[in-house]
């Protein structure tokens, strides 16, 4: 993503303007249930008064998901062949002919149809999910997708946006970017920030067994990481800053419970389009339970004393 730039817009733009929406490797019907209703497909926008009837929906997914079922066009790509499909679409867009029957399992007729729909759109938006980022090629696929969007902008307006899973994934990328210049996977071990996914990214470090202590903050790698990464987590001392019992807390040495941000304590979070919103405190946390911020402030002081 850092190699090619990142054409974005807010979800409000999508709601008011988008007449073509692509969901690539994501299933908002289940993972982001109100996304289509509030922002992308069914929402009635300023220039899209009729909601769904004013929009074309394209889904790229190896499975016939519930999102794919309501799409106008479903490109049933073979697993791990997203990069090929994007390259084929870019080739078609540039006027090349595909001399095969299928690319990445998708009949070329459907690829032509999808590219034509993209070119005809007044305002298109590509949403991509873990199906893209977890396929073979990982962030290189996104690079290629961004290039597709750049190519499409020769014909019409087009943007893309990652479908963020947790509510403040984007917030962390924003905060880390303004502190270090890099969005994630930052290595401070040489005294200055370095960024090289594959070398300084969590799963690769765990699989290679390079880290010797892990502090896990409000997430559950024990349930979601590959087996070999979890095996290393089981071997090293683990600290969990986490309110709930999870598979990861079962592997940990220290559990520090905290209050729920957005329920028991306020704070700022960034929406998937980069709009910061203020979370509210609705009820009090259980007696004596500290917030994440308080825990890290105390820890920071203690570290200062030890260094």
């Amino acid at each position: 993503m850092q190699d090619v730039g990142y054409p974005v817009c807010t979800l409000g733009e999508v709601k008011n303007r988008a007449d073509l929406v692509i969901f690539w490797g994501c299933n908002p019907m289940h993972a982001h249930p109100r996304h289509m209703g509030r922002y992308s497909v069914f929402a009635r926008g300023f220039f899209r008064e009729r909601g769904r009837r004013d929009r074309t929906v394209v889904v790229v997914d190896p499975r016939k998901t519930d999102t794919a079922k309501l799409a106008d066009l479903h490109l049933q790509v073979e697993p791990n062949k997203d990069y090929e499909l994007i390259s084929a679409m870019r080739a078609v867009l540039r006027g090349h002919e595909l001399n095969v029957d299928r690319v990445a399992g998708v009949p070329v007729d459907i690829i032509y149809e999808a590219v034509e729909a993209c070119k005809k759109a007044q305002f298109g938006q590509l949403f991509f999910g873990m199906g893209v980022t977890m396929s073979r090629g990982k962030h290189r696929i996104i690079d290629n997708a961004i290039c597709l969007i750049i190519d499409l902008n020769a014909y019409t307006k087009f943007g893309l946006m990652p479908m963020r899973g947790h509510y403040n994934v984007n917030g962390f990328n924003q905060v880390l970017s303004w502190l270090t210049g890099y969005p994630y996977a930052v290595d401070f071990s040489r005294g200055y920030p370095r960024y090289n996914p594959g070398e300084t990214s969590t799963i690769d470090l765990l699989v290679r067994g390079e880290v010797d202590v892990m502090m896990n903050i409000a997430s559950d790698p024990g349930a979601h990481f590959p087996q070999r990464a979890v095996e290393h987590i089981a071997k090293i001392p683990v600290i969990c800053v986490e309110p709930h019992q999870t598979p990861t807390t079962e592997l940990s040495n220290i559990i520090i419970p905290t209050a729920f941000t957005g329920v028991e304590v306020g704070g700022i979070a960034y929406r998937m389009d980069g709009v910061p919103l203020e979370l509210k405190k609705v009820v009090d946390p259980p007696e004596g339970v500290l917030t994440d911020e308080e825990v890290f402030k105390i820890m920071s002081k203690k570290i200062d004393e030890m260094l």
Binding site: N168, G171, V211, D212, I217, L307
Partner: peptide
């Protein structure tokens, strides 16, 4: 926790996605 982190050769801080920006 602070002691473990300070004594570690290469500690990993991971997660962050379900807390506020101030705590991050």
């Amino acid at each position: 926790s602070a002691r473990l982190l300070v004594e570690s050769k290469l500690p990993l801080l991971y997660g962050f996605s379900s807390i506020g920006c101030e705590a991050q």
